Amino acid sequence: MKYFIKRTGFMALTLFAVCALTFFLMNVIPGGTAELILKHTFVGLEESVTEEQLSQISSRYNLDDPLYMQFFRWIREAFVTGDIGTSYVFKKPVLYLLALRLPATIQLAGTSMALAAVAGVSLGIYSALQENRTSDHILRIVTLFGVSMPGFWVALILILIFSLKLKLVPVLGYGSLENLLLPAAALSLHSAAAVMRVTRTSMLETLGQEYIRFAKAKGLSIWRIISRHAFKNAMLPVVTVIGFQMGSLLGGTVVIEKIFAWPGIGSLLVDSISARDLPMVQGCVLAIVTMFLLVNFLVDILYTRLDPRIRYG
């Protein structure tokens, strides 16, 4: 219970720091917020915007107040009443817009993490069993490329090969398995490579332990040794990496969703930044960071299941 309270306080402090950083960085961007709001309201009529209209927008959203007052007003509303504002551009509550976009982001990030975990752990175990053989060297070279290539470049290559050349899957869209394949593959490649490298290293270290040699001396098959003894003991660092990679995936969705026109929080964040829709940006960042913190909290709880010796005080 004490650990839970501490961790909750740490998460709240992290969210506060992220919100403050996002708020003040958004206000450093050149150009007035009121002007950008009107530009998105009167598209094509920007030159006809008057000073009176700018004044009305500034008054409506309290944009003339000092920044610290605007920020603490937002914090009070967000953490006390649960209201994180109304979008300047869409004229709808931010929570409503996040609820519309969140399922798509969870679907993409969850599928990508599942692919990365299954592929990374499986190939990592196989590579450890084939240590210093040809297949091991090939997999290590592939993972080197996997961790080096940026997600947006992988996405463009996948579109070029599987959509434009082979015409196997559509480039854009949402709602079907075909639409999910390319963005999930592009997003998961880097994480799969990272998970595989850690799995291989951890599995090699575990297979060198005395109890593994004793199990081999008893005549147990290698797959029985792995499934009953080595796998669980090798998974602790792998779970740590998977938790951190989840944060990378959530950040990667911002670019991947935009490339594939995926209707998630990432693409909404990009559009909101260009429109300087501060409440929407704050809401998107808050949602992404909250998901990352929750995943890492679940990883900490999973530690105690993998290793009963770990206890949080």
Rank of each mutant, 00 (worst) to 15 (best):
T50H: 13
E77D: 13
I57V: 15
Y88I: 04
V18K: 08
I57R: 04
K6M: 13
S87F: 14
P183L: 14
I242D: 00
G9H: 01
S148C: 11
I5L: 15
L21T: 13
I212C: 00
P279D: 12
T201L: 12
T240S: 00
G252W: 04
L286M: 15
C284T: 00
E257P: 02
T81A: 14
P263W: 02
L249H: 04
S272I: 05
G219E: 00
E257S: 05
K92Y: 12
L144N: 05
A20R: 03
A99F: 15
L45M: 11
G247N: 03
V254N: 00
T111I: 12
F214H: 08
H137T: 12
V171P: 07
K2D: 11
Q70A: 07
F297I: 06
L156A: 11
A114F: 15
S58R: 14
A185N: 07
L268N: 04
R60W: 09
L268C: 02
Y312D: 06
L177A: 15
M246V: 00
S191D: 10
V80F: 11
G266D: 03
F79L: 14
L13V: 04
M26I: 05
G252S: 04
H190A: 11
L278Y: 15
L177D: 10
L204S: 00
I256W: 06
E47L: 10
I310V: 14
K39Q: 12
A104W: 07
A194Q: 10
G110R: 11
A275Q: 07
I5P: 05
L25D: 03
L181I: 15
A217N: 06
L63F: 06
L180Y: 13
S221W: 05
I37R: 04
A99I: 08
S176K: 05
V285K: 05
T14Q: 02
S48Y: 14
I161K: 05
Q130D: 08
R60E: 13
L21M: 13
R311A: 08
V198W: 00
F231A: 15
Y303D: 08
V43E: 14
L158C: 07
F79T: 12
L102C: 09
V238T: 01
S122D: 02
W223A: 11
I5E: 12
L189E: 07
R140V: 09
L220P: 01
L236W: 10
G85H: 02
L189C: 10
P308T: 10
L25N: 06
K218E: 01
S55H: 13
Q70C: 04
T22L: 13
I265F: 04
I125N: 06
L98A: 08
F297K: 01
F71D: 06
H40S: 09
I138E: 04
V147R: 00
L36H: 08
S122N: 07
I288Y: 05
T240Y: 00
V154Q: 08
R73V: 02
E210Q: 12
V169E: 08
N296G: 06
F292S: 11
A287Q: 07
A192N: 04
L15D: 11
